[in-house]
Design a binder for these strands. Structure first.
Lengths: 335, 335
DNA sequence: CGACTTTATCGAACCGGTTCGATCATCATC
DNA sequence: GATGATGATCGAACCGGTTCGATAAAGTCG
């Protein structure tokens, strides 16, 4: 590998001039610039990014930290970020915490050790310790998906209250009154907001929520399955189930199928969030989806703004909340 | 941030001794070792990985390059690799080429610039130029999924011929003769092997393959949909469709549903590779799945062996080919 | 006790860049 | 023609580590 000193020797200039020629070509005379460029391409010189990062104290890499890169929701966001970053000569390092807070912390510290230029984080936890940790990160960053109380950073996400409310309203319109809700972990903002959307919409309509109809699905497939089973074995079954996310809703569908219930004839189902291949799942589930492309785009723009604009770090953190979209399926029947 | 010189000053030793104390503690006297450790923890010293990589010429990071990190197949492999790497104090950098060869090349060069210790690559292309590029990579590496002719590296993958043959045999056993095949891009080894498995099994059974029944689905959802449509509008329809991967098979299912065909009553369907939420797709599709956990495990072990064992690079490249597993569903009907 | 090996530690060079202040030639201004 | 501003280039210090050869002290052996 050719180094900057090789180039300097060939071009008969000093090392610092070569460095200057690449970082700000305007400050070098046209003649020497030409000599340096010729020398560089002659030996195939490319600056070592590691050495650059060390000397500059920062790299052109962006950290992307989520709990599950396999989740298509994060996948769309990642793709948007990657494309936008690439256009601005940045490079995205993807990492996966598997939802484990300890590992997330390790990953972030590792990335910071790599002197990343910025960080896009889908927070995996909450609470004072966690907030303190995130607040201690001094790299430009944007949080997304999960709004965590106490973290004073840019945030990009969807209106989860609205998501819950929209589907509840839809079911009410169809004549349902015995509506069950498979909730997520209430310490997560997305989960609690969706639940709040459900509860308040029910209340506005003057419909009482049967406490037996609210079960905890933990946003996971296995817990969702158990929760759905508990709903379905009740003698006084709900006429509709609202899943707080895709995993619990599909788990509920599986449970229905296994018990021999038909959806939507016996029980209606609606869910928040999309899922891959939703179009081949029978019935097509009525859902409210997030605008992942738009979310990804905003995250990317905001993060690169913070990275590239020198006086951006004096700008106060800002929240960007997008409205979700209703996508009708045929999993909800009119009563 | 505390540097190694701070620690040296506090412990009243030279910088080189501090470095030695961390890299090979046995070569430092117990007394000084203790002093150095105390000083280090007093100022919270952690070695800068960037500086280490620069000086050593290599880091403790492993590059993971695939065409779609959202694909659960790659997700399982990634998770296995991450866990195993972490146990050996290595750190996985995930990158996504979106299947684009140019971007893959950029990513790999970037990673090499970062002086990665090793590379796990799911090749996205083929042909002389591509082979030459991959062969030029001098970092320890393991290829997986796609076997590319000419690349002399460790390879880990599944027996794709067998996968195609198993499902074909299954359909033949059920009495099907008019079996259609939605193929993948034939330049990909996985696709051509699966196709070969189909063709040769048909031949062995003495059943002729109707040329109209072999269509190209490109392993993608959209091409698969079109291909399936071409199959389904033929007056002389097949009685069974075999999808060379999950995307084309599910696209075929969608096409069937849209045209009003019932699966398996009108047409049977089988596919290679699993898909998330396959259990809630109606009907449950009969499939042959790869042992992703085992694949990931082998990739991880092999790569870390090549990284850590100093005389591993003299070992010749080796192929690891696993048998896939048959998972019956209810998408194939007996004729 | 002298010769030889071993052990602990150190200084300096190095990895491959960036950056800042200094230098010097050139040119405009009065 | 002295003064000052401007522009191009350079040397040296620096980023934060690793590594190797040198050195001095301690241990081994006949």
């Amino acid at each position: 590998m050719a180094t900057i000193r090789d180039v300097a020797k060939i071009a008969e200039v000093s090392v610092s001039t070569v460095s200057l020629a690449f970082s700000s070509p305007g400050r070098v005379s046209p003649r020497t610039l030409e000599k340096i460029r010729a020398a560089a391409s002659a030996v195939g010189y490319v600056a070592d990014p590691l050495a650059q990062s060390l000397a500059r104290g920062r790299s052109r890499m962006i950290g992307f930290v989520v709990g599950n890169v396999g989740n298509p929701f994060f996948g769309d966001i990642r793709r948007e970020l990657e494309n936008y970053a690439l256009e601005h000569e940045h490079f995205v390092l993807i990492t996966d915490s598997s939802g484990k807070t300890d590992r997330e912390r390790d990953l972030i510290e590792h990335l910071i050790g790599l002197k990343i230029a910025g960080l896009a984080l889908a927070p995996s936890s909450f609470g004072p310790d966690y907030v303190k940790f995130v607040e201690s990160i001094k790299v430009p960053m944007v949080c997304f998906d999960q709004k965590v109380a106490g973290i004073e950073r840019d945030f990009v996400g969807s209106d989860n209250f609205l998501a819950g409310a929209m589907l509840t309203e839809h079911l009410l319109q169809l004549g349902h009154r015995r509506i069950a809700f498979i909730a997520g972990p209430q310490h997560m903002n997305t989960a609690s907001e969706r639940y709040r959307g459900f509860v308040e919409t029910m209340a506005s309509a003057g419909v009482e929520v049967n406490p037996n109809y609210v079960v905890d699905g933990q946003f996971t497939r296995s817990a969702g399955y158990e929760a759905a089973m508990r709903l379905l074995i009740q003698p006084d079954r709900p006429t509709a189930i609202l899943g707080a996310n895709n995993a619990v809703a599909l788990a509920a569908l599986q449970a229905m199928q296994e018990l021999g219930f038909s959806c939507p004839d016996d029980i209606s189902l609606a869910m928040i969030d999309n899922v891959q291949w939703s179009s081949v799942i029978t019935p097509r589930i009525t859902m409210v989806v997030q605008d992942t492309l738009q979310l990804g785009n905003i995250i990317a723009r905001r993060l690169l703004h913070r990275i590239t604009d020198p006086n951006a770090n004096s700008e106060p953190p800002q929240d960007f909340v997008l409205a979700p979209k209703f996508v009708p399926g045929n999993s909800c029947r009119r009563l």
